[in-house]
Structures are given as C-alpha cells and as structure tokens.
C-alpha cells in the first residue's frame, strides 16, 4: 500500500465514524466482562471507564481518565468500537487515549475539568471526539473546536432523564428558531449564543446540527431511551443505567430493542416487561449545586 496516498483523521472520516453509530446504543462499561455483555446485547460501541458515573459521583474527589490498563483490556475484549473519557481541556489524557487505540474520545464533564477556560483543540487529533452540550451555542462551540459528535449533557449518574430532555429540547428548539432568519438576523443570533456564524448558518440551513446528535445523562430505562429518540436524538448513551440495574444483561437488550422500536408502543411495552428494577437513581433537584456535573464546560 502506498501509505502517502492514505489520508487519515479528516473531518469526513471523523464525522463519518459518528454517523455509523446512529440508531445505536453506546454503553458505559468498566470491565472486559461488561463490555462483552454490552456487545452481546447489541450495543454499537462501549465507553470504557474505571467507574460508572453514579459511582464517580459517590466517590467524590478528583475524577480522572480511567487506568489505561482498564481501557486496553476492554479494547482487547470486543470487536465493536471502544470510546473513553478525558477530562475537559486535558489534551494529554486525550493523547494517551488515542495512543491506546480508543476509537472516539469523550471530552467529558463527568470527570473533573483540567482547564477552566479552554476545551481541547480537537482538530489536532486523528481520532474523533464527542462532547456534551446543554444548548446550541455550546454544541456549536464544541463543533468549532473539532467535535465530530454532540451529546446532551443531561445530568450523568442520576438515572433522572429530565436534564437530558431539557437539553435535547433546548438544542432542537434553538435550531427551529433559526429557520427563516435573514443573514443579518443569523449574525445577531450567532453573537447572542456565542457561536461561529458559519456554523450557525449551516445549522439554520440544514435544520439540524452539522454532526450526529446523541442523548446522554440520566437515561435508565427502555422508555427513557425511546423518549430521547422520539425527541429527535440520533442515538443514546447509557451510563450507569445498565450495570446499576438489577439485571444488566436484560436491561441492555431491552434498551437496544427500545431504540430500534422507539415509535412502537406495543413493542416498547413488550420489551419493558419483567426486566427487573432500573438503577435506583437520585432526583436531580436533590443534588447540591457544587455536585452538579452539567455546569462543567462552557
């Protein structure tokens, strides 16, 4: 093969990778055994972590990139793509994850931010990134930095879907308001939401984000997953919702089936039966302000 003819890490390849995940469920896993359960259930990818978000929340302290050994073992155990989380702004953690062979990096608010001002310059990487967002401005700023996929932040590790709902509706609602705006109005809108005008214009014209848009942060049941799909998500991330459920294998399969049949209530009723209890969860409004994760990142 004439290696110089191959073009790696292009925008097309990064965004293309994210497109292949559409209609799928990406599951948080902490061991090779969990990764295999996820693959067997029909997950399109797994997110390798040392602890699921609800445990990270409980542990407190500084949450960092997972032990590279954990990530490497998970990569070796499955054939589906493996993603991993780096701290916001921690480009060296991201470089390590890329060197390990992670297929996508999540610059995530679930971990303790390493930089209070700047996110990672994701254009400098060969592997694609996914980033969380609560509104259109945040989503477009991340895309401008090179994110190939956006997910709602929701409120991770809670099993309470309301924040994911809020963020998805917020982003899609803002996109709708751009429809029919004149160029000068779009320029004003871009200034208001602090996003680059080119991306605002592209979004207005396409009437969707220029990259794949997933739901994440609090999805705990098949019905939650289907709800997010109905609201317009391209796919879902499920964090603590699977391996903190009473029967992870059953829950994982049920959520995959729910995403595939999100607009069919009969099937949803069937797949939701007898799957055991979902994760216990905590209501978002019971969380002290300093423990809220979604306000990390800007």
């Amino acid at each position: 093969m004439e290696l110089e003819k191959l073009r790696h890490g292009t925008e097309l390849i990064k965004r293309g990778f994210a497109k292949m995940q559409k209609g799928g469920v990406i599951m948080d896993v902490t061991t090779p055994e969990e990764a295999k359960i996820a693959e067997e259930a029909g997950a399109v990818a797994v997110m390798a972590l040392h602890a699921v978000p609800s445990d990270i929340r409980k542990e407190g302290g500084v949450a960092r990139m997972a032990d590279p050994q954990v990530t490497a073992d998970i990569i070796a155990s499955v054939t589906i793509p493996v993603m991993a989380k780096a701290r916001i702004g921690h480009f060296v953690e991201a470089e390590i994850l890329q060197a390990l062979g992670s297929d996508m990096i999540d610059e995530s608010e679930v971990l303790t931010p390493a930089d209070e001002e700047f996110h990672i310059d994701k254009t400098q990487f060969t592997v694609p990134f996914v980033c969380g967002a609560r509104n259109l401005g945040e989503a477009l700023r991340r895309i401008n930095e090179g994110a190939a996929m956006i997910r709602t932040k929701g409120e991770a590790g809670t099993g309470d879907v309301r924040e994911a709902v809020r963020h998805m509706k917020q982003i899609l609602g803002e996109i709708r308001t751009l429809q029919g705006m004149t160029k000068e109005e779009l320029i004003m809108a871009a200034r208001d939401i602090e996003a680059p005008i080119e991306l605002v214009m592209e979004t207005a014209q396409m009437q969707r984000l220029p990259v794949v848009n997933f739901a994440a942060g609090g999805i705990a049941t098949p019905a939650d997953a289907a709800l997010m799909m109905r609201l317009g998500a391209d796919g879902v991330f499920v964090g603590s919702g699977i391996f903190k459920a009473e029967k992870p294998e059953v829950m994982a399969k049920a959520i995959v089936e729910a995403v595939n049949n999100y607009n069919n209530p009969e099937v949803l009723a069937e797949v939701s039966k007898g799957i055991g209890a979902g994760m216990k969860g905590i209501s978002v409004d019971s969380i002290p302000e300093d423990q809220v994760l979604q306000t990390r990142g800007w």
């Binding site: 003819k5 191959l6 790696h8 390849i13 293309g16 054939t79």
Partner: peptide, 15 residues
C-alpha cells in the same frame, strides 16, 4: 475480515 485496516485511528480516505 473485520476492521481489516485497523481501528478508527487508522481509518482513511484514498483515491
């Protein structure tokens, strides 16, 4: 052969 050219890191465009 699945992932014949490697992981995402090695994905490419070619003429």
């Amino acid at each position: 052969n699945r992932n014949s050219f490697g992981r995402q890191f090695e994905s490419f465009e070619i003429d």
